[in-house]
Design a binder for these strands. Structure first.
Lengths: 332, 332
DNA sequence: TTGAAAGCGCTACCAG
DNA sequence: CTGGTAGCGCTTTCAA
């Protein structure tokens, strides 16, 4: 039950392949009568163009690659969903790869996608990534790329939220509500997203004349265990925090667990503000006051940027999708 | 900065393409000296085989397709993650498509994947799907397929959980704990997963001599709004349920919201047991007693089944990944 | 309007 | 050990 080819159609009808090709694509230069016959037979036999022959011919694959640290993480899953929807509208299929937030995997995935001849790549850096040679190499081979969520100071288009700004706002909010010792839970210091958010947090403290306590800042790793350890350490301080900013969903949930495990109440004893997705915030208890990121918009913009690049736009753009603070029940 | 081809290497070295091909693939019949030269140049010039030429030649793509109702849904996202990991180990890339749980999209995605010449497809039916012609057609073209999570009475390999059995167990559990009016929230009746689970639920009621109340069974649609409406209707009954079984994550969360909105307490007034992922159960409040499905195992088994099929195994297999009930705080 | 042939990059087969 | 050549399915150019 092999798929029928143009040649076979041609043979069956006793005509030439090139005629079949023209007829099938609706080009001029085929008599209406012959065209009808060809189209009819093609339909009957379920003719489908072989995409590899086409790709080989045009060096085009109608395929893009997506690299995420963790597809099963709600935030990324929503972004991926939107990218896929947009891509499909434009006739592109998405190849998805998951790095488990590891640098080595990221390099490997990138290589696989390049070898596959995807026409563009949308990716979120792993939290471990501090060297960008693998990404810069893409420019040399003219591979369109867009970073999202986590970018770096390299000359590559990106879509991120207002990291510093949002952190400044929530810090101010906590200060307004009387917090004196605000802790900050972030990812690796080298990650621009973390340093940006930390920067916003520190800025707000300065503006409000709140002394910075270095031991309230924990920037280690985005993981549940790391969040648990860090928060427990914070709570064991002689002067424990009365508020916590957690910059990743896993840090939010682990921080909450840690606080509860010490018999403390949220928000009475400790306020918590998280960077997390709506839906998770909503289902948690108490509902978490959070920085609402518009994943659909991030996905949409990322694809748009990529699409423009694939169509020849060479200018590097940095898009900021504004996130806004939403008050729920985890803050006083 | 176009990618270099075998022919170019051959020309540069003044040898024949076929020699280059052999050298590059480590085949016999090339002098060590010449092979060194070729490999060296290839590396220097960053030679990568063109996968389309290879695909065209062998009609093989090292690519599989995944179709899910909703990638952003935690349960599916975890399964996808595992499938992708397994596939990559075997050198396959995954093309992901999302149907938004719509039948029409499902047909379309399937067609796209077939046209792309993926070597196999792993899919979860949309809740709307009641006609399986599009899937059975795949057998005719010898496309390996595996269904997961939701299957149907068709002759296609599948991986599901012990649907009826698990439903029977949790119903029994609720009865043991004194529930008298257990409601059942499911998806469309035509969905085998729903009818299986409902069957288990009814069976348990019969065994325990609990009269079946038809108005406690709501099998409409997997969605937050549907769950909300259905639960509110249940609560408005003259004899409202004292326990609810919700067979989908969205139905669980919406049911809980509905119960809360009526000022009722979980589990004091209404017990709830859900089919949902660990992580969501854990973050909810109260933590939801749930049927724990092993998504990693489902993903793993689904890929294994597909992989076997792709390697010529023609027998249809139905794998059951046992789910087990985990008691948390939403049941008395 | 139709046909013939070349070529995309690669592999396989047969000669030398 | 190496070269030549045909062919995978399709498009394109040129010729009839």
């Amino acid at each position: 039950m092999k798929r029928i080819s143009q040649r076979e159609i041609a043979n069956l009808l006793g005509v030439n392949v090139s005629t079949v090709s023209r007829a099938l694509r609706g080009l001029e230069g085929v008599s209406t009568e012959l065209r009808q016959k060809i189209l009819h037979l093609a339909k009957e036999q379920g003719y489908r163009p072989n995409p590899f022959a086409v790709s080989l011919r045009y060096d085009t694959t109608r395929t893009i690659g997506i690299i995420v640290p963790d597809v099963s993480f709600n935030h990324f899953a929503h972004i991926v969903k939107r990218i896929e929807a947009e891509a499909r509208k434009e006739g592109y299929m998405c190849i998805i790869t998951d790095t488990d937030d590891k640098y080595e995997n990221e390099k490997y995935c990138l290589e696989l996608l390049v070898n596959m001849h995807v026409e563009g790549i949308i990716m979120c850096l792993s939290q471990e990534t501090t060297d960008y040679a693998h990404i810069q190499r893409l420019r040399k081979i003219h591979m369109p790329v867009v970073l999202f969520d986590r970018d770096a100071d390299i000359d590559i288009s990106s879509v991120v939220i207002n990291d510093a700004d949002s952190a400044r706002k929530i810090t101010n909010y906590l200060v307004d509500r009387g917090a004196q010792r605000i802790a900050f839970l972030g990812g690796p210091n080298k990650l621009k997203q973390t340093s940006d958010r930390k920067h916003g947090y520190l800025e707000a403290l300065h503006e409000r004349n709140i002394p910075v306590r270095k031991n309230l800042v924990k920037c280690n790793y985005f993981s549940y265990n790391s969040g648990l350890t860090d928060t427990l350490e914070l709570l064991d301080l002689p002067e424990p925090p009365d508020a916590i900013i957690a910059t990743h969903g896993l840090l939010v949930t682990s921080a909450m667990k840690a606080v509860e495990s010490r018999g403390l109440r949220i928000p009475e004893d400790v306020s918590i503000i998280g960077y997390m997705s709506d839906w998770v915030s909503d289902v948690a208890s108490p509902r978490v006051s959070f920085v609402k990121q518009n994943q659909k918009e991030i996905g949409l913009k990322a694809f748009k940027l990529l699409f423009d690049q694939m169509n020849g736009d060479t200018c590097v753009q940095h898009v900021i999708v504004k996130a806004r603070f939403e008050v729920r029940d985890s803050t006083r």
